[in-house]
Design a protein around this nucleic acid. Structure first.
Lengths: 220, 220, 220, 220
DNA sequence: TATGAATGAGCCTTCATTCAT
DNA sequence: TATGAATGAAGGCTCATTCAT
């Protein structure tokens, strides 16, 4: 029994090493130009071995996405442990998202690439894709939970459906962070150069706006 | 002089035809699988001619992005002509953005693809890339103008820097619309399946939240 | 001594199991697409074990041929036991050949494949190849015997050399049966579609022609 | 008009050159081990150019078969021009078949390989495959014609259906010649070593047997 | 300016065989 | 004897780009 479990562990560990290697290679040249040869070399493994652990190149990329989704979702899940108001939880989640993307830019790129990959039906029906979707749904649930908490503790309006609100926050945050991400990692996107504010400032202001609105005097 | 100008006009027209053809091809199979052969055939032009008008394949893709940026920016520019409050202008701009993406999904995909392309420095320094950036900056300016108008007419809080606020709106809208786009065009992204709300509802609510905030009773 | 013999018996038995497995795999997808992995799995044996019993993949294929040759030869050998005229024996042998191929199409395909394999000198000099050749020679001998019997009992002309005649019968039968085989097993070979006659009819007529000739009135 | 025709002629000529090259390569190492690289090198053409003229590796092989079928059929067709009895025509056709195979062994191997190739449906439905089938049918027709002539001039029994008889002759000849072919081209097939008779003798005797039968006194 | 045939580097994937355990 | 993970050479095919005409 133990023996089998050890084998499985080793196999899983090897898969992780390959994913690590793939990430390294992608960091250098991007997703499109990464080759199986390079990944194999980086992983110090034969090219054939890659196919022992992954069905094909796309599967490796999917696995990167899956790991990223999992890590991000884990990080969000821990925020719910804090004793904070719902609004504060949402704020913390936004910050966690930003931090995650800043520390793991490759995963964010993978998320974007993922959306291309799963146009392929076969891939879409794979276990890994299912895991990605499940992670995303889980992350979404944490956001909705925080919103529901906020609606109960009075920190968040209860005039919106929490699910729809969650979706809005999710999508908008992704957009903001995507923008922030490009500002930090590439030297293009000149629009961003006109504005000097730090990303943290932008994110914080974004969350504040989400909270209080940008309209003046909305009560009167 | 006139002769040369006519030649230039013809050349520009031919470029547009090639871009049209490329868009048609991409519509069928996506960016990654479009080939120069197909584009040439669709444009009813020889493959060699493609290189007479564009430096390489990436340039064609860049040109698609550029055209998309220009069209979107034009559409935003016209909104400033309306006699509306700043907040209303922003709302209208959001709706225009959504409409543009819904009617021209290919350009939106091109924007995303563009971000990949310009990792290549040589491309980044091209005229086309400059035009893209310029369009984006222009679009951004229209948003900032609308915000400034709103701050003057009192419909928008003046506690934020209009540029930063513009950036936030721009990024967040892009995120929301990206999400909406995938929900409409692909049948994956299971998170979205849990929520039934129409895109219009999501966008409108997003804009409303931007306007009024989602926090409850923040004055008291 | 006995111990060793048992080991040998077990080894031989295992070889047979592997051959069985290989045949099953080949039945599914043909010779060219059968892989050692599949054969090992089908044989419920490790891939490494395959190489304990056979030098390489070609050897397995050779072994299939060898078994086929042996079975066919056995079936021919039994015909000599009948108390029939030489001509009748030949007829019976032809029918036996047809029956064998119909019941064991895989062996027939293996014979054809075998002829490709033994282009490789190393393989050609193997024990298995020798066994194949020996079986074929044996089968040939049975045919020649039948012919000799026929020449003695007067049912077959003695104007031909029995060996040469045997060769002719052997080759021609193989051709007829090959054709018949393809007609049954594949849906191509459109020439065959123009003719409706049953295989049995063709074979029987072939044997009759061999016997009586197709020329008219050759005596007068 | 002429210009287009010339292009087409050049294209056809280039195709023939590639087929020539493929034949050369196959002569050296057999069908299975010939590679596109080698064929390209032999044809003094880039690998990519191969795919300009042929869809596939299989298509090249098919084209070899097609050329072989055409040549053989042409050679058979000319025999019908002779003023001979039907039986003599058949005999001449047999000899022509043998001569063809002796002079162009590669085509004969191609015929055998062809039967493997067209298991693939897509290939089977190709134009080239249709041409092969058509050639075979044409060859068959010539044989049947000769038989019909023989039945009219009294040189061949009219008790058989000419089509069925044609099929029998076709299949049997192929078998004999296949055997003869291996005897000449490979150094295996030890059965054949026991018999010293020349191929011509075997073929001639085969045709004679077909004509007169091997049975003694078949009238009584 | 226009053509499209030709190029050839490059990629993913397969699979027979080996070898440490 | 048995395993099966690992190897790595080999192969078919694609396609952006070039260049002779």
């Amino acid at each position: 029994m133990i023996k089998k479990t050890r084998k499985e562990r080793e196999r899983a560990a090897r898969k992780q090493l390959i994913i690590d290697a793939a990430i390294e290679v992608i960091k250098k040249n991007g997703f499109e130009s990464a080759t199986m040869d390079e990944i194999a070399k980086q992983a110090e493994v034969s090219k054939g071995a890659l196919y022992l652990y992954f069905k094909n190149k796309a599967s490796i990329y999917l696995a990167i996405s899956e790991r990223g989704s999992r890590l991000l979702t884990q990080s969000l899940s821990k925020i719910l442990l804090f004793e904070l108001s719902g609004l504060e939880l949402i704020r913390k989640m936004g910050q966690a998202y930003l931090k995650f993307v800043q520390q793991n830019p490759i995963y964010f790129t993978a998320f974007i690439y993922y959306e291309n990959l799963i146009s392929d039906d076969e891939l879409f029906e794979s276990e890994l894709a299912a895991a990605c979707e499940e992670s995303a749904r889980e992350a979404m649930t944490y956001i909705v939970r925080a919103l529901q908490i906020g609606m109960q503790d009075g920190s968040i309006k209860d005039t919106y459906d929490p699910k729809e609100l969650g979706l809005i926050i999710w999508g908008a945050s992704k957009g903001i962070i995507h923008m922030a991400f490009y500002k930090e990692n590439r030297n293009h996107m000149k629009i961003l150069d006109d504005v000097d504010f730090s990303l943290d400032s932008i994110i914080n202001n974004f969350i504040e706006i989400l909270g209080t609105g940008m309209a003046n005097d909305q009560k009167s």
